[in-house]
Amino acid sequence: MTVSNNTLAVEVMRAPKLKPANATFGIAIGVISVMTLAAIFAPFIAPYPPDQLDFAAVNAPPSPEHWLGTDGLGRDLLSRLIFGARTALLGPLLVVIGSTVVGMLLGLIAGWRGGWIDAVLGRIFDVLFAFPSLLLAIMAVALFGKGLVAPVIAMSIAYAPFVARLTRALIKAERTRPYVAAYRVQGFSGPWIALRRVLPNVTPIVGAQSTLNFGYVLAELAGLSFLGLGVQPPTPDWGAMINEAQAGIVGGHFLPALEPAVCVVLVVVAFNIIGEELSDRIGGEIPA
């Protein structure tokens, strides 16, 4: 009897086993880590201040002084990309956090309570789905002025219904499970079960889906900056950099536009890989 007990204890201890990481996932994590570190420590690692002009080297090709070349005003592109990562990553991060928090709470209320609350919230989501998120962001800019704040709030609202709809479906499936009935029979209150027990059980799946949103939001915010409605020059921002470099493309200087574009693509692809891998690993079925 003691023997079988001991073997079990050992099994219990080594139970959580990570699946072997696959190479693509590792590279994606690497890309995001490098970008994040660069953004955080930008002042220490950027070779030049992002706004320092060098009229001796305008539209210069890559060289030992300027590894990735310079733009039309002679600013070091590498430094601008590093500083640009700050707004590029911060914006989507805030949107993902904002939309996840708001969306999960609304989804929890709709899925747990059901009935007319669910119906009303569902119609509100439908209305929000009808507006493209970029359009909402542009409206917010028109109302509250340019910069990062207004688009971030607008996009948080635009993305919240996606999170809410997923959370609602998961909660609805979860609340019919016997373990929830078991909590009820034990005398726990509904809000306690919903917030402390059921919500944490759906969080990993919702979190993995939100990671996927990160890439889309980043691309859309960069688009907004490109249109001149987001982060304003001279603050370095990838979208704004592409905008500023437009004129140069005609003159044959495509690098200043290509480099920030590549950065956007890298981050978006990396986040999609991470998001999908996380969804697979968590193994939650995404209900329609």
Binding site: R177, P178, Y179, A181, A182, Y183, R197, P200, N201
Partner: peptide, 11 residues
């Protein structure tokens, strides 16, 4: 409950 696989909170 009937099914012990479902009546315990997995987490």
């Amino acid at each position: 409950f009937q099914d012990p696989y479902l009546s315990l909170d997995p987490r």
